[in-house]
Structures are given as C-alpha cells and as structure tokens.
Amino acid sequence: MPTQPLLQVEDLKTYYPIKGGVLKRTKSHVKAVNEVSLEIYEGETLGVVGESGCGKSTLGRTILGLESKSGGSIQFKGNDIGSLTERQLKKYKKDMQMIFQDPFASLNPRQKIGKALEEVFVIHTTMSKKERKQRVLELLSEVGLNKEHYDRYPHEFSGGQRQRIGIARAMALNPSLVVCDEAVSALDVSVQAQIIKLLKELQAKHQLTYVFISHDLGVVRHISDRVLVMYLGTTVELGTTEQIFKNPQHPYTKALLSSIPRPIPGRKRERIKLEGDLPSASNYPTGCPFHTRCPVATEACREAKPEWREVEEGHYVACHLV
C-alpha cells in the first residue's frame, strides 16, 4: 500500500440546519456526518456500511462536493479541496465521480442515452461532435452495451442496463476515485453480480479507487479491501475486510454482522438484537453515540465520547470497552 493516501478526510462534518420560528433562525443541526476522519489509498476499495440514515451517503456526497461541508478538511492527491479556486476545483471534480443508487432516477427521462453521455464531454472537453460520439460508443461497449443503445431513451432500458449507463457516465472522464452510492442495491441478485463483476473489471483496467457505500454486508465483503462501519454520522470501526468480518471489535459491528443470514443448516449463530431505534441525528446522544442501544454500555459510555484507537495494525475502533 502506498504511503501517500489518494484522499484524506479529517474531522469532516456535514450539518443540516433546522430552522424554526418567524425569523427562520437556526435552532439546531442535524449532524449527518460528524467528525469523520479516514484515508483512502489508490487502487483500493473502501466499503462503507451502516444502517439507513447513518450518514454513509452524505459522507460520499460531501467528499465529492455535492453537499457542502460544515467543517473539517478534504485532501485529494495532497491538495486541500477547500483551498482551491473554482477552476482548479472543476479539474479535481473531474477526477472524482459517483455512481448513484437508483438507476431509474439518475438519468434524465427526456434525454437519449448517447446525448446524456456526450454531455459530459461537452462540459469538460473541447472534443468535436464526431470525437464525442466515437468516445461514447467506446464507453458503451466498455460497460457491456452496444451502439444500438446510443439513440434510446432511459425508459427503454432495464435496471441493470441503466446502471451500466450510470457507470459509463462516471467512467467517461477517466476519474481516479469513484463513489458507488448503493450502486447495486436497487438491482436483483443476478444483475447485482454482473454489475459487481463489471466494476471489478473496470477497476483492474483503469486503476480505480472505489468508495463502495452499501448496507448489504455480503456485497461489501465481496468487493472491499477495507471496510468502514458508520453509526449515526460517526465512524465506529475501520479495518481490512478480514479484520472486520473475522474479528469485529465494536459491539455495533458485532450486532451488524450477526444480522447476516447464514444459509448453512444446523449451524446456529448468536444473533445480537439491538433494542430501540436509531437515535435522531438532530438530538445527538452525549458520550458514545451508540450507548443508547449498546448491550454492554457502561457509565463511562454515557459520559465521554470514545477515542478513535488503533487496536491492531490498520484496525481502528471507537469504543471504551475494547
């Protein structure tokens, strides 16, 4: 693993203000992403898991600058994104792309696929019409579609095909970092497998780095080199896929892993059931954010926020009890 991370995120915060009253004053914040620090290395796939509403999508969007951050810093290829000028930022944004969750919603229904893909080149390059078309046809074949698809509208495609188009759009500018936000969650299992295979092929071919956001632990385990576990906007555990799945340390990770159904008859696993619901991110718990549902919480958990500690090489946990 190279020492210089491709992307370095420090104390990243994304807060949404809650406004109220006649004067629309900010009363409090929804802390969607709260003090997240992580490093992503070139060529790896970082899986981000957590239940719905834990801020994993917001984290991805904030990294790409689609949501504005409320605090912290993002360094991409050694440059602080916050300090860049508009023009430099456009260049960096070109290098970071996103694949969206819903392949039905992420394409303009009134635009032909070929035109939609060409638009990316219209924005970022000075290619001629012919060159653009040529490039789009190449892209289509790269993601397993063919040139007849160029003149079709999104509704003429199946979910898996649309996700291929989404991938083609993300790959169009040869980015180095791609955030896959629940990229396969809306697809059925056989199509999921095809899309994951495609993503892996593209990664090998173009030296891509993925941030793979998903709530599907099986998929994450299959595709990721390292896994980040998030809970209520904060990071609770980070490690290699093997460390997280074989030797989980944080009680939340353990509960999450125990929820994976095992299709092996006769083998019983202890299922850790969490009590209660995810607390509201607008009314943040004091101390450890997980203490309200943690089966082993102590007095200390209610009072102090646990530190982000390295328990073995490359394996970080935020828990008082580890």
């Binding site: 969007r61 790409l64 689609l66 456009k90 944004k93 070109k94 792309q97 996103m98 969206f100 969750q101 819903d102 919603a105 992420s106 394409l107 303009n108 638009e119 990316v120 924005i123 970022h124 989404g166 759009r169 993300a170 169009a172 500018l173």
Partner: peptide
C-alpha cells in the same frame, strides 16, 4: 430533487445547463 440533477452536478454541469 430528482437524482439525475444530482448526477449532472457530479459530472460538473453548471446551473444554466
């Protein structure tokens, strides 16, 4: 609020476009 508007912004499309 549609996702394709977000997608367009992620590929760098400007407001006018």
């Amino acid at each position: 609020k549609q996702e394709y508007v977000m997608a367009l912004r992620s590929v760098g499309a400007g407001n006018t476009r």
